[in-house]
Amino acid sequence: MAGPGNIPPSASDTGYRSLIGPLLLPTWAVIGIFMVLPVLLMAVYSFLTKEFRGGVIWDFTLAAYDQFFVTRGLFGDEPAQIEWTYINIFWRSIWQAGLATILCLLIGFPTAWFIATRPAQTRGLWLFLITIPYWVNLLIRTVSLKFLIRDNGPLNESLMAIGLIDGPLPLVNTNLAVQLGLFYSYLPFMVLPIYAAVERYNFALSEAAADLYASRWATLREIVLPVVKPGIIAGCILVFVPSLGAFLAPDLLGGAKTFMIGSLIDEQFKGSQGDWPFGAAVAMILMTLVLIVLLLYARAQTRGATR
């Protein structure tokens, strides 16, 4: 406990206390006006009535949400039933994002561990190698992947050349391609936080476990994973959340059957077939989902901190 004399100077009197207002004003103004306000407005839009040329009429209605969850037949005269079309798209997105998260974890954890256990001189270089692709334009990376895996692309050609397959594997426009795209897009997001956690890990814990007769893998399971769990959870969130709302990977690598939330939202704002209130409603539902995930994460973190 800090005694009265030990209250950290906390740079309390370096002179910025009186400037808090002016220093934070730009942040509040910019993010407030161009992000908070728009999201609130989007919430309002999801309750407005669609106008046919791709705009809205200011009449409040639940039509957009009704359209998402409920069907009354082709002509709207049948009894209300659950509309599965959009729920299925969400379900597919969640499933794809979840699978991408697990794949990223399976490859990302060993990678992060390996890098974090390199000697200090080479560690930076390994980390640098993992970081570069993260900074390369996502669109370009996705296009490159498409180029690589397309029917007569280098991957299929070389597999056929070595006689592993007879005809090209139809990868593009499949769930597998989208999955590969998500995995490829967000893999660095998994590696970096786990790396940070492993770097702080006290390896004497592993030695203590080994001393107490734990095998290598038992040590991993019983000691390492629980200790670096915060990093693993952070990595999973960083992969899952953007995967859920991904647009480029499903749009470029997938087809009609692999439709995900991102494309569904995008479609509502294109040209005259658009439906802004419906698009806003879908975006609201997506945001709610993400918020739930983040809240669960925050709760897990505070529980971990108080334990």
């Binding site: 800090a2 005694g3 009265p4 004399g5 030990n6 100077p9 309390s12 009197d13």
Partner: peptide, 18 residues
């Protein structure tokens, strides 16, 4: 001893604390 207020007093003379 630490926490007795000696550093606080010094910082008051220096002007780092009000």
């Amino acid at each position: 001893p630490s926490g007795c207020g000696k550093t606080t007093l010094l910082r008051l003379i220096a002007g780092f604390e009000t």
